[in-house]
């Protein structure tokens, strides 16, 4: 039994989600190989070779793989994947994009966003926005799986010494091309990996008021998130959205400010260790999951909280 983990990387560096995915692979058991696909990914492959528990790194370096276009990547992964019992990738937007294409090419069902490994063929995953946990068993010859990274503790990034081997695929399918991207820039920690997250909702009233959350976050070394209401109202960009359709976070401390706590938002944060809610409506559903609730006007409470830290 050998497990193939597809590395997630951006700007020439490995993304920490890869370490959580390797942790899931270790629970499945067997040898673990990591596949690094992209253009100019030598440094990433070397980084991947150092991950504890990885026995081999395979690297596909080609201009056609530069922007992770699924039409180009899926045939490569499906081709290599036939040698493995399991293919795993983090459930990032990139993993969600190409992995089902790999599964369909291999003619197997995919298991999305596992949060637990019971055995090599049995996994736990949330359904209905996290309101139920399903235990599923797969009889597929190759198990194609995406991993919810908050469900697994990261393995050590150092300590391994795997060999790097170069592989090649068919390259460009000619069906799609990259036009451009617009990335949100921030000095704060990455939302999905932050230890502390401060999130704002409709109660923030406008984008300008998010400055209160930014300065509180900077004091705590936290990332800033948002509810769908805040994103739809244009207060903040959509990559800050936490929830069923946004990012899933499970930090040590989650501070929800002016967020009512709809089912879809809770789906993205209710596995946080400690939840704090600041809301002036004491009936808000967020108080049913909050460890510490403060019924107060956020425009008074947030600056006061920042001052007292």
């Amino acid at each position: 039994m050998t497990v193939l983990v597809i590395a997630e990387h951006t700007n020439g560096a490995l993304v920490p989600a890869t370490l959580n995915t390797v942790a899931a692979a270790q629970q499945i058991g067997g040898d673990i190989h990591v596949l690094v696909v992209g253009e100019g990914v030598n440094a990433v492959a070397e980084e991947a070779a150092k991950i504890a528990g990885v026995s081999k790194v395979r690297m596909a370096d080609d201009a056609a793989y530069a922007h992770q276009l699924p039409e180009n990547i899926a045939p490569l992964v499906a081709g290599l994947g036939a040698e493995y019992s399991h293919i795993l990738c983090a459930a990032t937007t990139n993993g969600k994009n190409f992995m089902p294409r790999v599964a369909a090419q291999l003619d197997v069902d995919q298991i999305s966003e596992i949060i637990g490994v019971d055995s090599a063929d049995t996994f736990k995953r949330p359904i209905y926005a996290g309101n139920a946990i399903a235990t599923v068993q797969s009889s597929a010859a190759i198990k194609v799986i995406t991993v919810r990274t908050t469900g697994f503790d990261a393995v050590a990034a150092e300590g391994g010494s795997a060999a790097v081997e170069t592989v090649s695929g068919a390259g460009d399918s000619g069906k799609s091309s990259f036009v451009g991207e617009e990335l949100a820039k921030s000095d704060r920690p990455e939302l999905a990996a932050a230890k502390v997250v401060v999130s704002g909702g409709r109660g923030m009233q406008n984008g300008e008021n998010f400055k209160h959350l930014y300065s509180l976050a900077d004091k705590l070394g936290a990332a800033v998130g948002a509810s769908r209401a805040a994103v739809d109202a244009g207060f903040v960009p959509n990559d800050m959205q936490v929830g069923q359709t946004g990012k899933i976070v499970a930090p040590q401390l989650y501070i929800a400010v002016g967020i009512s706590g709809a089912i879809q938002h809770l789906a993205g944060m209710k596995d946080s260790k400690v939840i704090v809610a600041i809301n002036k409506d004491e009936e808000a559903p967020i108080f049913q999951v909050a460890d510490y609730g403060l019924v107060a006007d956020l425009f008074e409470a947030v600056p006061e909280l920042e001052k007292s830290l």
Partner: peptide, 14 residues
């Protein structure tokens, strides 16, 4: 135009 983890990405498809 696609929503990705870091922001937005635009692709052209045949």
């Amino acid at each position: 135009t696609r929503e990705i983890d870091g922001g937005l990405q635009t692709v052209a498809l045949k």
